[in-house]
Amino acid sequence: MAHNVGIIGFGKMGQIRAAALHEDGRARVVKVYDVNLPAGTPYAIAASAEEIINDPAISIVFVCATNEVNKPLAIAALRARKHVFCEKPPAFNADEVREIMQAERESGRVLMYGFNHRHHAGVMKMKQVIDSGAYGRMLWMRGRYGKSVDGDYLKTWRADRERAGGGILLDQGIHMLDLFLHMSGSPFDQVHALVSSRYWKIPGIEDNVFAIMRSSETGVEVSFHSTMTQWRHLFSLEVFLERGYLVLNGLKTSSGTYGEEELTIAKNRATAPAANFDSEERMLFKVDTSWAREAEHFMDAVSLGMPVLSGNSRQALEVMSLVDCIYAHGHNVSPNLHEGLQMVGVGD
């Protein structure tokens, strides 16, 4: 039996989720709500988000709205005993995620967050290789994720601190942080960070974040850069292990702005140079199947009772705890440093 779905927020993301659910076939969208609905919306239109949450015919609620309503809508839907899929960020800080988790426990319903990067084919292959142990233990990672924005960005809700909760870190960098946690399987409890807004100069909306992190549990170290002054869109995730490395450059998206999604894998050699270009294996992923895979994963949890392995609330808490740490230390301004910049660490 197909589940009835209500979608709150029917912009780009709401439409992507509706298409993915249609492809999966185990749920049907019956009602949507948005303050600015696109022309020709093919579903019944609700008068408010509350109408969708309180509709007894709806068993699943998708929250695809602006950041500031993610937490209250997710909690309200869980308390109405609906299964919930919510876009990132889950909330504005880790304490708010803990409030959501309490509602989740009390509801007994499925809660999943939209960290779709875990479902990209290149990322899935990286995780598979790492977990196989064929290349030994992980040593370090480096991640860069950046995009270019223009003056029109200043006119959107993403440039409003009260609605967005933050800048490029919550908008895009959170995906890379989630991938670090996903690949390593352990939290990063030592953090040095620089957070700045030196180009767009929007109060509370950072345009660059640099961070260096380490896990005391595994010793894995990470270098991270999240930026909205990357004038050429870029995604790059590098993982170096004892006996080789994996490098994912580019990300297959509908816009094509991040280029081809190409994964390079190579094993070390016994003599220098440890590896060379001729020994690298390259895999090109030409189709973005992440949305369909994520919808399948969610519907497996709802329909089959399977656990949410990617995008669960525990993982949401881990990534928001890391976000909290970066903001706390990156914004801790010292008077003898340039305005908006600081570098401190958990272990200092």
Rank of each mutant, 00 (worst) to 15 (best):
R17F: 06
A18T: 07
A18Q: 06
A19Q: 13
E23C: 08
E23P: 10
E23A: 15
D24A: 13
D24Y: 08
G25M: 04
G25W: 00
G25T: 08
A27G: 09
R28F: 06
R28Y: 05
V30N: 09
V30I: 15
K31E: 08
V32N: 06
V32I: 11
V32R: 03
Y33F: 11
Y33K: 03
Y33G: 05
Y33H: 14
D34S: 02
V35R: 02
V35D: 00
N36Q: 13
N36E: 07
N36S: 14
N36V: 07
L37W: 00
P38N: 11
P38R: 03
A39Q: 11
A39L: 03
A39Y: 01
A39S: 14
G40S: 11
G40C: 10
T41P: 06
T41N: 08
P42G: 12
Y43H: 10
A46F: 02
A47D: 14
A47V: 08
S48I: 02
S48L: 03
S48E: 05
S48Q: 07
A49M: 04
A49R: 03
A49L: 02
E50S: 15
E51V: 06
I53F: 04
P56W: 01
S59C: 04
I60A: 13
V61C: 13
F62W: 07
V63L: 08
T66A: 14
T66D: 14
T66G: 10
N67T: 12
N67C: 13
N67F: 09
E68Q: 13
E68Y: 13
V69G: 10
N70E: 01
N70T: 07
K71G: 07
K71W: 04
P72N: 04
P72T: 02
